[in-house]
Computed example of a mutant assay.
Amino acid sequence: MMEEAAAAALWGHRHLPLLARAQSKDSVEYILQALWRTRRTGLDAADRSVVRDILQLPSDADLDPLLVCLRILIRRCVHEKIVKDGVPKLFPEEVSPELQRLLTLLLQKFQPEWQHDAAKDQASVSLSGTAERHSSENQDTTEQRSDGDREPPELQNGVKSLVVEKELKLQLAKDSLDKMLQDMYAIKGQQSYDGSTNGHEEAPGST
């Protein structure tokens, strides 16, 4: 309802009736086809110049409101799947019966083709989105695998240094322990030897 009210207000300023300036059905057909062909990009300067000449309009300021009206008509005809009897209901009272009949005829003529194109557009967008999503997921997975299998050089060197340092400390600790044990056994052996010698000398009847 809001779109209908906005469209009626726009057409109420006599923008859509400007199509009556076209000299032929083919001219109006060209305008509709040009609008559909440029549905994603908008009319370029060359197309605008041709349409202004067809309608004898001095500037884009006069042309743009008309183009908006026509794009609304085309979009509703394509996406709302309006049937044949419903097309005339799209026009406000300001549009003459002759222009209504011409536009109805052309919209009905191109509706199947435009709906087919719109379906292909939708399928293409869906496939593109799916492919882009898969590509992004694969790239993330590849990067994760690469990062997991390969560490930065500075990290590798740091880990190696820590390992070497730890091994050195362990080796030093082992060497120190071995030496300490050896010293202990040496001292113990010396004490045992001294005890045995002293005991022999002090034994009775040794003289």
Results as ranks from 00 to 15, higher is better:
residue 10 L to K: 03
residue 13 H to R: 14
residue 17 P to H: 02
residue 17 P to W: 01
residue 21 R to H: 08
residue 23 Q to T: 10
residue 23 Q to N: 12
residue 26 D to L: 14
residue 34 A to H: 12
residue 35 L to D: 07
residue 35 L to R: 08
residue 39 R to N: 01
residue 47 D to Y: 10
residue 48 R to H: 10
residue 55 L to I: 01
residue 55 L to T: 00
residue 57 L to Q: 05
residue 59 S to Y: 12
residue 60 D to R: 07
residue 64 D to Y: 15
residue 65 P to F: 02
residue 68 V to S: 05
residue 71 R to Q: 11
residue 75 R to Q: 12
residue 76 R to W: 02
residue 80 E to G: 01
residue 82 I to M: 03
residue 82 I to R: 04
residue 83 V to H: 05
residue 83 V to E: 11
residue 89 K to D: 01
residue 90 L to H: 00
residue 94 E to C: 04
residue 106 L to H: 08
residue 109 K to F: 12
residue 110 F to T: 02
residue 112 P to V: 11
residue 112 P to F: 14
residue 115 Q to C: 03
residue 115 Q to F: 00
residue 122 Q to M: 09
residue 122 Q to W: 01
residue 123 A to P: 09
residue 127 L to C: 03
residue 127 L to T: 14
residue 130 T to A: 15
residue 132 E to F: 14
residue 133 R to T: 15
residue 135 S to A: 15
residue 135 S to D: 07
residue 138 N to A: 13
residue 138 N to C: 10
residue 140 D to I: 11
residue 142 T to W: 14
residue 145 R to T: 06
residue 151 E to C: 03
residue 154 E to N: 01
residue 157 N to M: 02
residue 160 K to C: 00
residue 160 K to M: 04
residue 162 L to A: 05
residue 162 L to K: 07
residue 170 L to C: 06
residue 176 S to Y: 01
residue 178 D to E: 04
residue 178 D to P: 02
residue 180 M to W: 02
residue 181 L to K: 00
residue 184 M to I: 05
residue 184 M to Y: 09
residue 189 G to E: 14
residue 190 Q to W: 03
residue 191 Q to D: 13
residue 191 Q to L: 15
residue 192 S to M: 15
residue 195 G to S: 14
residue 198 N to M: 15
residue 201 E to V: 11
residue 204 P to Y: 00
residue 204 P to G: 07
residue 205 G to W: 05
residue 206 S to A: 12
